[in-house]
Write a protein that binds this DNA or RNA. Structure first.
Lengths: 142, 142
DNA sequence: TAAGAAATGGTACTAAAGTATGATTCATTT
DNA sequence: AAATGAATCATACTTTAGTACCATTTCTTA
């Protein structure tokens, strides 16, 4: 950002110099005022567009998106009353694993996985694992 | 976008008029050249930033992000040999719908939905719908 | 027009997923 | 110490999902 400001100052100074030169030529050669105005307009509008692009895309948009999503995460999980184990199951479900595979990964029985996922669906207020994935992403907990 | 261009033209015209007026005053009252240049610079840079914001956020950035993902999208789908109907089923699967619900939404039988999803899984090289969702997002086709 | 892909549907079967209920263990909290 | 919540597991059952095969009907394209 500091770099942008420096470059901005430099470019403005440069343009002022260019303007001065043009100003001088105007008096000497009596150039058409329209051309003069046109050049000035194009130069400054270009500068503005470039500046606007730097400022808008580089800062505002990005930071907003990434900060918010990570904060809501853990809070939402607690609010919904989702336990650690249930959350782990949720992660594996959304990674595409079957209940049996999840059981093996977590070293628990298929029964337990079903219990966890069933409770999870209640807390997420969904009926299927695919809905759970969808909702979890909507709620930013995945 | 047409509106933006119209407004742009209008504002430029307006500024030209303002410049003319200033030009006139300059000859009459012999204003300082520096002030004149400053006013011109500020006006056009402002216009440029405003324009830049419009153009960049409205077009370039968005279209870039959306066009790219949309292009890879359709190309990938074609490369995998996924048909329109299969893709529709994929979308509904990832939205969390059951096969029965998908059948109702597309006005086809449960049988057909199963056929489509089964073929889809072959093409995506997955075994389950949750894996299909995962892979589809990895491949940027969803 | 004939060949082939796409879409549709049926039957039958297997495999997962999901629900309901009850029970045990363990750690934490009151 | 008693109560509570989390994690574990089992059994039994219902519902979805998924596979395999086969068949018919559009479309599209060579």
């Amino acid at each position: 950002m500091k770099k942008t400001i420096l470059i901005y100052g430099f470019v403005v100074a440069l343009l002022v110099v260019i303007l001065k030169v043009l100003e001088y030529k105007y008096f000497v050669r009596n150039l058409s005022v329209e051309i003069y105005i046109g050049v000035v307009a194009v130069l400054f509008v270009s500068l503005g567009i470039w500046l606007g692009g730097k400022v808008n895309s580089g800062k505002l948009i990005h930071q907003d998106k990434e900060l918010k999503s990570r904060e809501i995460n853990t809070e939402q999980v607690k609010e919904l009353g989702i336990s650690k184990r249930e959350f782990e199951v949720l992660e594996l479900i959304s990674a595409g694993y079957s209940n049996q595979e999840i059981a093996e990964k977590l070293f628990i029985s298929l029964s337990t996985v079903k219990t966890h996922s069933s409770n999870l669906f209640l807390k997420l207020d969904v009926k299927r694992r695919t809905q759970a994935i969808q909702k979890a992403k909507e709620l930013n907990i995945l």
